[in-house]
Amino acid sequence: MAELTYREAVARGIAQEMARDENVVFLGEDVAKAGGVFKATVGLLEQFGPKRVLDTPISEQAILGAAMGAAMTGLRPIAEIMFADFIAVCYDYIANEFPKTRYMTNGQITMPLVVRCGNGGGARFGAQHSQSVENWCMQFPGLKVVAPSSPVDVVGLLAAAVRDPNPVVFLEHKSLYATKGEVPEGEIVDQLGIAKILRPGRDATILALGMMVSRALQAAQTLQSEHGIDCEVIDVRSLVPLDTQCILGSVARTGRVFTVEENPRQLGWGAELVSIIADESFYDLDGPLVRITTPNIPLPAADALEDLAIPSVSRIVDTIRRALSA
């Protein structure tokens, strides 16, 4: 078992799939010769050559459009949109093209492609390079949306995304690239649509994603040691497909739910999850559903401001402690 960084896991996952299937190709801005602006794709050009690892112009529409045309005619492209915020300049493909083509053509066209992005805040990049865009993507029937929180999940979920016959948006967290974790040797293939209970608990369920997962785990530890509150922490991992059974099962055991979301409050992914829980597990609940989110503001750049905006360990602890003692 080797310890890999999250960024090394990205390259490992892509390499695993490219080595397995010559139809897997990879394109994006600065991804080949430079190895990616986040250095998450270092070595791929050297290993697979310029026909399969392509530096593109700064043309996000061309990147996603080309990925789509290649996918619908037999390749399995991985396209990088450097910062997830840039999805906004090629949103037509995310909103109108990828997810609807199969349906509109009555199943004639299959779209096996992956769009990888550096998602999320914490890097002091300001409002246009820090957003968590899960909800920009998860609202379209036909698209899948995945967000790994650990190196081993990066490899396994990326492999699952590449092998999936549907378009998948793969949201890497840019503030996790330097984090490390154990990754077993050999081929790793996970499954989309499976949440993971990372810490079992009896008093409350915490639903987290991406960078919020480690904060939820730290908060759970503090809540246990300092307040005797025993939280179950679930890494949702995949928003579409969503592992509702895992989540509702946990709610049935704990009776309380807290989402920890990096996105601004309005229409964040947790809103959909609490809506499902309210519909289907209402009588399991012992109290209100609580969403812990970034407030409804653009993300600021300065350390002191950004740290205040994104849910912190202490905010998670305080919110849960107050809710459970009320």
């Binding site: 990147i63 080309a66 789509m68 037999g74």
Partner: peptide, 10 residues
């Protein structure tokens, strides 16, 4: 237009 490019790339 980009989609046609992708098919041609294939």
């Amino acid at each position: 237009l980009p989609i046609a490019c992708g098919a041609a790339w294939r």
